[in-house]
Design a protein around this nucleic acid. Structure first.
Lengths: 365, 365
DNA sequence: ATGCTACATGAATCACCCC
DNA sequence: GGGGGTGATTCATGTAGCA
């Protein structure tokens, strides 16, 4: 295999498949390896219902040494196919992330950041014997210290309301309609949310780049790569997951490439418009209507800005240009709600997202 | 040194000092080791002012291997002095925490949680080449898997507005009047905020426990330990920091013991159902009502068992038989209160007896 | 359609005493 | 030390069912 099998799911052990790929050919790797959870007994909620733990056979290792060998093998194989300018993301929990980070540093990867995914709705600790485990950790590392790498600072800043994107990402877990199901049961026990991958790919790759995921699973990485105009390669050992991902990707539409070009920073409000994109309430390429009228339309860009009449900027900036007055973009811009075929202010979506992210708590004494 | 040097700062290398302490004598260790930051060049803000990085000699290591040796040495020494029921906290950043976590697991420590300290006011990434590094990581580990350990669940829940404390802690960095200064300059480059230690010590120790900090620095651990009625031992290599901490601790006042009462029911003595009979709150021959309904009644026997439908057993056993599920007999069974002619759970009587037998006590030991 | 309640569930290393 | 009994323990969110 000398050329890259782009935009495909490849069935097989990731080390073997990686070793057949040409060296230094991948721009970005996102890896979601087994966490080695080591669950022993069943766990019940206070109402005595049983918690469905992750006890899949792919997460069973004899001991730490076996897990270390596994980790070194796939990290080394990834390192070979990564371009000198490429970066690697790995997600994990306290069960495995210290082993991953240790070996990754030993192999010569240079950590650029670690990111904590703060879950807005984690599962509680039912027995009250530890802290609620409310986060997972991502390590972002380049192949070699000092090499150039891709970090789309302005896109991240735009996505974060004109403030620098920080290392703590507050996002909900994957649930509801986003969660893939088969006969009512979850199709994959550890499906990652699209918003997480959206931020990773937008930050650390460019349109046309090749993004590889050695533990493809349900294929979230591929779906978001398509949204963002990145090529993707998914490696998955389990034929059932491979089929699942193939079906998913066959139904994923790509965003128009015009929305994906490089950008400059803009002013944004506190809850940024980009959050609507991260959470899938809007998609890049959708049309916005100024004051709900069809003669002024704008195009939603992937980093949370909009394009109108050759101009690019935040919803507020563009709205000011059109109205020639200080206006609030959240009220001016409308989106088409296909559910009831009406135009609504995007502020409607913001309220919806607010209720998702910051559900107001009762007043306390 | 056979007895513990309580409530003192000891000057010396922590491994040497730890090796002179008796084994299995410490309840809690909080360690804030050098982070091995490996800063190469000076960093300037956009206005060209110089950023005061951590370039102290105590944070310089030749390479990862040297740092690993250092880490293994102090972790091993800590492990020896820790009680079987003791736990260890280590704080670090992505520079060192993966090495710490790896070695700690290899030594047999069992991770209970990792905690992310989210800084509400971190230093921005001035050059815009990475994400703002807005967090540090703490690992909380017990000496050995499966041993009992201290976690004050109710204290944590109360501290968090009656919701379980999560693994993400949003706290500001140490600044303002809390920050120790000498001639206007920071007295210690990595002084930790008291709020962080407050949560650690309140969660994982009890009044009277011995808390040890092998990298005492400015002495935040000691100050909070005094606040919370814990004994403390601080080890610090640098004589200047040792003096700084001694001055600080001399001016720290301890909390009134009455404010430190235990709220964890696990530490309260157990009251069997028969105690209600012994103390006359119930009498043999009385009727109990399952879930307050009159169709399931049981007879109280003199030995603290109940008889229901020919079966005899504990309140829990019989309740489980009726409910065909794991239930708590204290909640299921009701008694008739002649005072106001209502049915109440027998747990009401238990609470009453508890308040009679165990008047809220002062600090123990 | 709207609103309310009940129910389900999420990468989980989830008890402890006493015989 | 092993086994059985006692009894302590949950938050956010989405969906289904029903009025």
């Amino acid at each position: 295999m000398s050329s890259l099998p782009l935009d495909q799911v490849i069935q097989g052990d990731c080390v073997e498949v990686l070793n057949r790929l040409p060296p230094e050919s991948i721009d970005l790797i996102f890896a979601d390896p087994p966490y080695n959870l080591q669950l022993r007994n069943e766990l019940r909620r206070p109402d005595h219902s049983r918690v469905a733990g992750v006890t899949d056979p792919w997460d069973r290792f004899a001991d730490f040494e076996a897990y270390d060998q596994f980790t070194l093998a796939w990290l080394s194989a990834c390192r070979r196919v990564l371009k000198a300018s490429g970066t690697l993301w790995v997600i994990g929990s306290y069960h495995n992330i210290y082993r991953v980070g240790y070996h990754l540093q030993n192999l010569g990867f240079w950590i650029l950041n670690d990111i904590v995914w703060i879950k807005t709705n984690p599962m509680p600790n039912f027995r009250g014997v530890r802290f609620t485990n409310a986060h997972e950790t991502l390590i972002w590392a380049q192949k070699e210290r000092g090499k150039p790498y891709t970090f789309n600072h302005h896109a991240m800043k735009a996505l974060n309301g004109d403030l620098q994107m920080r290392s703590d990402w507050h996002l909900p877990i994957c649930s509801g309609s986003e969660r893939l199901r088969e006969n009512g049961a979850k199709a994959h026990s550890t499906q990652k949310p699209r918003a997480l991958l959206y931020r990773v790919l937008l930050a650390a790759s460019n349109p046309g780049d090749v993004v590889l995921d050695p533990f493809f699973g349900s294929g979230t990485t591929g779906e978001v790569a398509r949204w963002l105009g990145r090529h993707w390669i998914g490696i998955e050992r389990d034929p059932r997951y491979m089929e699942l991902a193939r079906r998913r990707l066959a139904n994923t539409s790509a965003a128009p490439p015009a929305t994906l070009t490089q950008t400059n920073p803009r002013r944004e409000p506190r809850l940024p418009f980009g959050a609507l994109l991260e959470h899938g309430l809007l998609q890049a390429g959708q049309t916005l209507y100024f004051e709900g009228r069809t003669e002024h339309t704008a195009l939603v860009l992937a980093d949370g800005r909009v394009e109108y009449n050759g101009m690019r900027g935040s919803i507020h900036l563009i709205a000011r240009q059109i109205a020639a007055a200080a206006v609030n973009g959240w009220q001016q811009w409308h989106y088409f709600d296909p559910h009831d075929e009406t135009l609504r202010p995007i502020d409607h979506l913001r309220q919806k997202l607010k209720s998702i992210l910051f559900k107001p708590r009762e007043e306390e004494e």
